[in-house]
Amino acid sequence: MDTKNIMIVGVGGQGSLLASKLLGHLLMGRGYDVKVSEVHGMSQRGGSVVTFVRYGEKVYSPVIDKGEADAIVSFELLEAARWLPYLKPEGRVVTNTQRIDPMPVITGAAEYPGGLVEKLGSSGAKVDALDCLGLAEEAGSQKAVNLVLLGRLSHYFDFPIEAWQEAIEACVPAKFLELNRRAFELGRGTA
């Protein structure tokens, strides 16, 4: 098979590292060659962050380039739009509808664009937008947005649910396990 590419994008501090860790574990367990590329350091301080997850028979580059992503998983709406050029023309965007104003918007130097869900859709991308923050709160913590998103993403894989559950158990600290399971199920729509 060709290498598949998933991007996880968001704002530094939103928990994308757990999402990529979990995906990496899941894909390794399915027998794929896997590469995951992360961002550490200064960009983590509230900046735009991206994680690349690539899997297939043999993966070379650790990064995803423009026009290559099969899916973009986004923690924040503006970030989904920012990384859109990396999506394949027929690719899928799974995004949280949460809006986090960047500093130029906060200071009034720029405006947060309106109608982003529609604009993403009219670009040709298949868009699945949902209120992950609300669902995470329902699960018990705002910090569980990452598992809500992964739950939603799981729709678009053929992997058995048990594989996802095993990955969650392996990657989430025991004391947050129940909370994260609930968040995943709420995202998947099976709760």
């Binding site: 200064m42 983590q44 301080r45 509230g46 664009p113």
Partner: peptide, 19 residues
């Protein structure tokens, strides 16, 4: 070379900030 397609409008930057 694969080609992607972005939105036509300019998007505000998101530089890192003090927490």
């Amino acid at each position: 070379v694969p080609k992607g397609r972005g939105l036509s409008e300019e998007l505000p930057n998101r530089p890192p900030v003090m927490c």
